[in-house]
């Protein structure tokens, strides 16, 4: 489904990704954990070619190419197979909620408007925003904006959706509504690669947890393995910081 191998990325002399491999099978919910600055955002951005990786290989939906060899049309083809949910929502400010969702269908994929509107409304309905079709981003709460962001990412029917800390910019009372939507997507078998610090979400929903530190994957496995008996010292330290000792086991 999505396989990234040996990805390297440096900003100047700062080596942010040092040979990361990541594999997301169809229907997988992979949660990517790691301290701030460990390179999680950079990894997701490289996968979507929002940054150009220095080295490495990507395979997704029948495309199989080295990052450095990808030309404009390869990048465009890959982006059509992967959608992105941003930490700060990044909704199109000049478009209504519905237009935000249909834009990628009508303009990006050349779908007839009536069909796009039907899909767009269904997607917004799915994230509980059937009454907000005509609202502009500025009229929506953070939680609502992020749900539009998720609807926008789902609508284009991608092979995999990348989430970069989708709840980090939200007020605590709004986090739940976004996580609920993501849980529902997981139950429906949506393939997702999620960066988050929501540990209980990771424990309950992930099919696989990957722990990153300083640009390397330190450890990965099923949530039970990672949360109950992490093998690596760095994983244990990270989890202790987030969960506290008492909360350690499931």
């Amino acid at each position: 489904m999505l396989a990234v191998t040996n990805i390297h990325k440096a900003f100047g002399t700062n080596e942010v990704l040092r040979g990361v491999d990541i594999m997301v099978e169809k229907g997988d919910v992979v949660v990517l954990l790691g301290a701030s600055g460990s390179g999680k955002t950079t990894l997701l951005r490289c996968i979507n070619f929002l940054e150009l990786a220095d080295q490495g290989h990507i395979r997704v939906g029948g495309i199989d190419i080295a990052f450095r060899d990808a030309r404009k049309k390869d990048i465009h083809a890959i982006r059509r197979k992967i959608s992105f949910v941003f930490q700060n929502y990044n909704l199109f400010n000049n478009k209504t909620a519905l237009e935000n969702v249909t834009e990628g269908l009508i303009i990006g994929r050349g779908m007839p408007k009536s069909q796009a509107v039907r899909i767009g409304k269904a997607c917004l309905d799915k994230v509980g925003l059937a009454n907000k079709f005509d609202s502009y981003p500025g009229q929506l709460s953070g939680g609502q904006q992020q749900r539009v962001g998720i609807a926008r990412a789902v609508a284009v029917n991608p092979e995999v959706i990348l989430f970069d800390e989708p709840t980090s910019a939200l007020d605590p009372e709004l986090i739940g509504e976004v996580l609920d939507v993501m849980k529902r997507l997981a139950t429906e078998g949506t393939t997702m690669l999620i960066v988050t610090h929501e540990m209980s979400f990771a424990r309950d929903v992930a099919t696989k947890v990957v722990f990153m530190d300083e640009g390397n994957v330190v450890e990965s496995g099923r949530p039970k393995e990672i949360f109950v008996k992490p093998k690596e010292r760095r994983t244990r330290q990270f989890l202790q910081r987030f969960l506290g000792d008492s909360d350690y086991a499931i």
Binding site: F86, E103, G104, I107, G108, A153
Partner: peptide, 16 residues
């Protein structure tokens, strides 16, 4: 520039 990145993420070209 995140507005343009969002456009890329739903399969739009730079021109679009």
């Amino acid at each position: 520039k995140s507005q343009l990145e969002a456009a890329y993420s739903v399969g739009m070209t730079a021109f679009q």
